[in-house]
Amino acid sequence: MVLLTLLAAITIGIIRMRNLFAVVVLGGIYSFLMASVMIVLDAVDVAMTEAAVGAGISTVLMLGVLHLTKTQESKPKHTPLLPLFVAVATGAALVFGTFDLPPFGLADTPVNLHVAPYYLENSLRETLVANVVSSVLASYRGFDTLGETAVIFTAGIAVLLLLKGKRKLKPGPKRRRIGR
């Protein structure tokens, strides 16, 4: 609960800060907090990934982009009232929906009774891997993980194309520099 409250506080900080450098650093703190929450929720594998990817790689990527662009956000021009209204209305509807959800931490909810017991009972016999998360990820859902790798590969190629192709572009009439 304390961790979750801290998460909310950091989120408010991220919304209010206009210095993007501070926003990115807060984002790193946010990711580490989220990883701690995940450990409390028994998702140790996810917590490790979040700490490495969310707090590590994402922060480094963001800092790299800030180095290439600029670190100060300009003042918002139009009033934030409409987005605020949309956000609050969506949030209220969702909170109303939570009252029909089963309370936190119970074992006999539909989520935990459907297919999960099958994996907990049979994965050790069928795959000989003690960690159920690994066995489901790499064995039962192996093709899904292959597809995920394809997604990352495609994203990597796209990033390279976007960043490497810039020199070849001819300086047409669309190119202009406002700042820098």
């Binding site: 028994d42 936190f104 074992a107 935990n112 159920v132």
Partner: peptide, 12 residues
Amino acid sequence: PGKILGGTPPVL
């Protein structure tokens, strides 16, 4: 919803 109070991480 996947967390069960009193449960452990799913490492058998």
